[in-house]
Design a protein around this nucleic acid. Structure first.
Lengths: 148, 148
DNA sequence: GTGACTGCAAACGCTTTGCAATTGA
DNA sequence: TCAATTGCAAAGCGTTTGCAGTCAC
């Protein structure tokens, strides 16, 4: 676990350096937070800020926004737009999925892509529209909330 | 055409009155704008404001927001969330569809629901998640932009 | 006449910016 | 060293609110 994290940060450091950019405590903390929620959560910039500030008291929101944008440009984090808010999650090429957001309880479920990809293929041949399968977010009611 | 519009406004007037609410010039203009773009467009509140102000110079943005919310609560207009922005369109029960937004040129295409509904049914039985089929917005590249 | 509605101005929440100070390489 | 990065403060943006005046009915 610990090793995973430090390795990941090292990889980030390298890829930053390759672009003439620098590793900083802020970036390491933010990246580690994104890594920790991987697979079970999608945070807003504000939420990332709150968590990061616990470990880095002087941290500024602007830094969080800049870092998340940087990580997104480096293709390390994905953006998910839900309603009027944007959420971030670590990209995992091995586990491509889309999001199901419950409009009642706000829980986010992951959905494997096969199903969607079938739809995407049909859509493409029928209309020529190539939908973004990767950052797809579907709104609805989860099992629990739908039963009410 | 003209007759359609005035009839529609009359219907709105009636349904407003039924709830103890009033028809005003502002509401009539905003509703007519929504009616005019029906089927070929989805406007942000700001866009509705700009168009309405041409006809009603003293109009205030706040009124537009309040009116659109009112129309939405009356189930006369739909909301569509795309990325971080919200767009409005007139509801048409006869033509249920979802939206395909091109991430390159921002054009919005309509898609009939059969395809999506098939997916929704499968999703429901497999995961219990009841997706919102009505306000669905898919992002991607339209035929024209995808060919580049 | 009276309460629903409007315009105005101010406040809002989230995000972005310019800049001077700091810090990683 | 010195440019990249940070914190700070201010501004930006779209949206919402409270309120006093207006207008539909």
């Amino acid at each position: 676990m610990r090793e995973d994290t430090s390795t990941a940060v090292d990889l980030l450091t390298e890829s930053l350096r390759a672009k003439g950019m620098r590793m900083t405590p802020q970036r390491a903390v933010i990246y580690e937070i994104m890594k920790r929620i991987k697979g079970h959560g999608h945070l807003t910039a504000q939420e990332v800020f709150e968590r990061a500030r616990d470990r880095l008291p002087g941290l500024n929101v602007a830094t969080v926004y800049r870092t998340l944008e940087m990580l997104h440009e480096a293709e390390l984090v994905d953006l998910m737009a839900y309603g009027t808010e944007v959420r971030f999650s670590l990209r995992d090429p091995k586990h491509r999925h889309c999001h199901l957001v419950c409009r009642n309880c706000d829980r986010v479920l992951d959905l494997e892509l096969d199903e969607i990809e079938r739809l995407a293929k049909r859509l493409k041949t029928e209309t020529g529209f190539a939908m973004d399968v990767d950052h797809l977010t579907l709104s609805g009611l989860c099992k629990r909330c739908g039963q009410v």
